[in-house]
């Protein structure tokens, strides 16, 4: 026992810089619904290096949101190990920030109170969070709307509040669950710009779940597809940033898009 601990300690010191943002091995998750047991993830292994922008792609019902919720500590795994920054994930944590698909920001807090909500609730002194909060409100383009209620904002602007809030809370890891799924094309494109700008600025490890191939290609360093409860496809995306519309014409991007679509359509074909 003692020797194990010291060995682990030694290796931790040795590889402090190399500790991945996520180290997931043998992850299994099953739910009991009324009729049957569903096992969306079975034996999934995944390592996410620090600073990476990872997109988890897949059609709905393939467990990609479940995987993200496990990473956020919102869903306890049935079996397997999930380490974030070298520590076991046992529940939600301020270091594991999340942007939800739904409108999840508290409706009863004005924009600035919403963005500062995390640090305030964790007892961070105002002198510390004040400048950061103002900076991220500015960065997402909500300067001047600090006193607005969420109900007075559009859906896209409420997403901006959620993004500013999670950055202001300063987690090492940012998890996003189809955050822009319900937005129109232009709003979504604008939010991509904002997100990439903040990602470049803060270098946070980002895990982004989407069902949109183009969105994944535009954002990701690496794309994985979850199929049959495992990482079915794992590709790195090394196009130069910033990625604009020219990516639509790029033959390599087109090849990647075709490949991804083919993998994505496979389970759908099986179902129908």
């Amino acid at each position: 026992m003692t020797s194990t601990t010291s060995a682990a300690g030694a290796s931790a010191v040795e590889s402090a810089a190399a500790t991945p943002a996520f180290h997931i091995t043998g992850l299994e998750v099953s739910f009991r619904t009324r009729e049957r047991t569903v096992t969306p993830l079975r034996g999934l292994d995944l390592d996410v290096p620090r600073g990476q922008f990872l997109c988890i792609l897949g059609p709905s019902g393939q467990g990609k949101s479940t995987l993200l919720r496990v990473m956020a500590g919102l869903q306890p795994p049935t079996a397997g190990e999930v380490l974030a920054e070298g520590r076991a994930v046992t529940g939600p944590d301020a270091n594991l920030g999340m942007v939800f698909q739904q409108d999840a920001i508290p409706q009863w807090l004005r924009v600035r109170d919403n963005v500062s909500f995390g640090p305030r609730m964790r007892g961070v002194p105002a002198s510390e969070w004040g400048p950061r909060v103002d900076h991220f409100i500015e960065a997402v383009g909500l300067a001047g709307r600090e006193r607005a209620w969420p109900k007075e904002l559009s859906g896209g602007m409420r997403k901006r509040v959620a993004i500013a809030a999670v950055f202001a809370n300063d987690p090492d890891i940012l998890l996003m669950d189809e955050p822009f799924g319900s937005l129109d094309y232009f709003t979504r494109a604008a939010l991509h710009e904002t997100l990439l700008k903040l990602w470049a600025e803060t270098a946070k490890t980002t895990v982004f779940v989407t069902h949109d191939v183009d969105e994944a290609i535009k954002l990701a360093d690496r794309i994985i597809v979850v199929t049959d409860g495992r990482v079915g496809l794992d590709v790195s995306v090394d196009f130069d940033r910033p990625r604009g519309d020219e990516l639509r014409m790029d033959p390599r991007a087109d090849e990647l898009r075709q490949g991804l679509l083919e993998v994505l359509q496979a389970p759908a074909r099986m179902q129908s």
């Binding site: 919102l74 944590d93 920030g97 999340m98 939800f100 999840a104 999670v166 998890l175």
Partner: peptide, 17 residues
């Protein structure tokens, strides 16, 4: 709705607060 409490939990809000 679950996300009403899940989102604040991911910000680190917990307990009585």
């Amino acid at each position: 709705r679950p996300e009403v409490t899940e989102y604040p939990r991911t910000l680190g809000v917990r307990g009585v607060r």
